[in-house]
Nucleic acid binder design. Structure first.
Ligand code: SF4
Ligand code: SF4
Lengths: 162, 162
DNA sequence: GTTTTGCGGATATTCTGTATCCTTAATTTG
DNA sequence: CAAATTAAGGATACAGAATATCCGCAAAAC
């Protein structure tokens, strides 16, 4: 069980978009270059963010992406689910139905305990991600990243933001 | 991100093994038949449990598997990690190293905030699974499964247990 | 009108999960 | 002892998902 690398990409891109001045856009090209990622494929991740209404887009030169809401109104789960999907990590194939001892026509009223426990763990994972806001991430990064790198990165970004 | 179906299989098999009388073994053949699973492939899952020292095995006719410890000393995480592996679900490909603004020779002292937050969620998932013991599962199942089915299943099992 | 951009569809490639088969060694049964 | 049964592990095939690239389209900027 492993998350797609697009999750990492999307999180990093959102962190960058969170630092954009009001009303400006940043293109896929710039984001791909900044992170050293395949432009065409990163585009798919950004499209996922767009479909989840996490980002606004505009076309044409000087077009690109910007956050649809403030970084404090977007949490990690929003971003992760946009890319990874909302499906639970444990899928029940209902193997208990194959039990040869089962009376014919026996109908299970609810999902069995195994599934419920696995889903509970899944919910704990989601809860943790839900509690971390994009603004929290930006706060941590701005403290941890070396100031000169932090600054030159955003100069680099602003030069390319439409 | 989806868990392998072997996880479900392993959990169900352990629940059955937990109901075996002291010292008896149950074969792959019986477990596969009971759950309607491909015997050869289920065998791989059981081998994982064996490698993780969760079950004891013995060869020959009347051989098979039994729990290596009491059901109260085995938790969900033990079983899940045995078949799914202990790797974290989020893998960091360190894309920040591609930042063109990076000073040459810049060395990151620690994993970045994105990775740490994702790993924290992973830990929450594991914690939840760690807190549920196999004996808890058996307790719930014995209450929820219709008594006649519960009983006939274990009669079926005992008839095949070596 | 030309360029740039996001978007979606189509396609190819690589990797993982699923599944089967076969050999070997240990153990029970007769 | 001989035959049957079992777990273990290696080899291999198959299916589906993740990764990646390419193309055509419509909207926006200039
Ligand atoms: S016991 Fe639970 S997890 Fe297993 S098949 Fe039934 S519903 Fe699914
Ligand atoms: S920012 Fe974190 S998750 Fe992203 S590449 Fe760097 S270390 Fe990995």
């Amino acid at each position: 069980m492993i998350l797609k690398s697009q999750v990492e990409w999307a999180l990093h891109c959102c962190a960058i978009l969170a630092g954009l001045p009001e009303g400006r856009y940043l293109s896929t090209k710039a984001l791909a270059e900044l992170h050293g990622l395949p432009k065409e494929y990163l585009s798919k991740a950004l499209q996922s963010l767009s479909q989840a209404s996490l980002v606004d887009t505009t076309l044409g030169p000087s077009g690109g992406y910007r956050l649809a809401r403030s970084p404090s109104e977007i949490n990690f789960l929003d971003i992760v689910e946009a890319v990874e999907g909302k499906a639970r990590s444990f899928t029940c194939t209902n193997i208990r139905e194959n039990n040869p001892c089962r009376p014919a026509g026996y109908c299970d009223s609810k999902p069995c305990a195994v599934a419920r426990i696995m889903w509970e763990a899944d919910e704990a994972w989601r809860d943790t991600l839900r509690r971390v806001r994009l603004s929290d991430l930006v706060g941590i990064l701005s403290e941890e990243v070396r100031p000169d790198l932090w600054q030159s990165t955003f100069e680099w970004v602003l030069k390319r933001a439409g």
